[in-house]
Simulated scan of single mutants.
Amino acid sequence: MSQITVISGVERRRMWSHEQKLALVEATMMPGANVAEIARRADVRPSQIYRWRRDLLDPTPTPASGFAPVVVGPDQHEAPERPLAMVIELGGAIVRIAADAPAALVTATLRSLKR
């Protein structure tokens, strides 16, 4: 004869109210709070609390498409042309250095080209 085991009781997946989630998230925001300890006391995983934190406290929703609208119009103020002191072409890179560029910037730029 075979044996059958019947598991009864509360199902493991619990439903948390908005207030319960918010209370746990707020507890993690207190100075010196330990998310792992708070999660252990509530019998949830720390990752669940981090998920609730992101969902409940993030004021900016994620954009649906990932693209932002761009409006192209005429340039209102054009940057004045600065006189060039040097134009360096090295290994496919072109560096234009203005006459009034700081010496430290020129030195750092040329050193980075050497690498």
Rank of each mutant, 00 (worst) to 15 (best):
A36F: 01
R40H: 11
P31C: 04
V44S: 03
V6I: 15
N34Y: 01
H77W: 03
E26D: 15
D55T: 08
P59A: 10
L113D: 02
T28D: 10
E81G: 05
R51N: 10
A42L: 02
R41V: 10
S65K: 04
R45T: 08
R53M: 02
V25R: 12
V72Y: 00
A27H: 07
V106C: 07
E11Y: 05
F67A: 14
A85C: 05
I97Q: 08
A23R: 15
V72G: 10
L57F: 00
E19K: 14
R40Q: 10
P83Q: 14
R12M: 02
P83E: 15
A101V: 10
A23P: 05
R13M: 02
A33E: 07
I97S: 05
R82E: 14
A85K: 15
V95E: 08
E78Q: 13
P61N: 06
D55W: 00
E78S: 09
A104E: 12
V71C: 11
F67M: 14
A93L: 10
V71M: 12
T109V: 01
T28Q: 07
R41K: 14
A27V: 04
A99T: 12
T60K: 06
G9T: 07
P102Q: 08
T5H: 14
A108T: 03
A85R: 15
A104G: 03
E11W: 01
A101W: 00
P63L: 04
G73P: 05
R111Q: 12
A85E: 12
P46C: 02
R12W: 06
L84I: 14
H77L: 10
R51M: 08
S17T: 15
A103N: 08
V87R: 15
A108P: 01
A103C: 06
V6Q: 04
P46L: 09
G73W: 00
H18C: 02
R13I: 06
V106K: 10
R51V: 02
S47E: 15
L24A: 13
I49R: 05
R40N: 07
K21C: 03
L22A: 12
T109K: 06
E19Y: 03
V87S: 14
E37S: 13
P80F: 00
E81A: 13
P46T: 05
Y50Q: 10
I49C: 00
T28G: 15
P69F: 03
I97P: 11
M30A: 15
W16H: 02
M15K: 14
Q76W: 05
P69W: 09
D100N: 15
L24T: 03
V25W: 00
T62L: 07
H18K: 14
P63N: 00
P74F: 02
H77D: 06
I38F: 07
A23F: 04
V6A: 09
A23W: 01
I49E: 01
R53T: 11
A27M: 10
G32N: 12
Q20K: 04
V95L: 13
G92L: 05
E19Q: 13
D100L: 04
A64K: 14
Y50C: 03
P31V: 01
P46Y: 04
V25Q: 08
W16V: 01
P83R: 11
L24I: 03
P59M: 07
P80D: 07
K114G: 06
L113H: 00
F67I: 11
Q20I: 02
E26C: 09
A36P: 02
S8I: 13
D43Y: 04
S17E: 09
R13K: 13
K21V: 01
S8V: 09
H18A: 12
V95Q: 09
A108K: 05
L90E: 12
W52Y: 06
D75I: 07
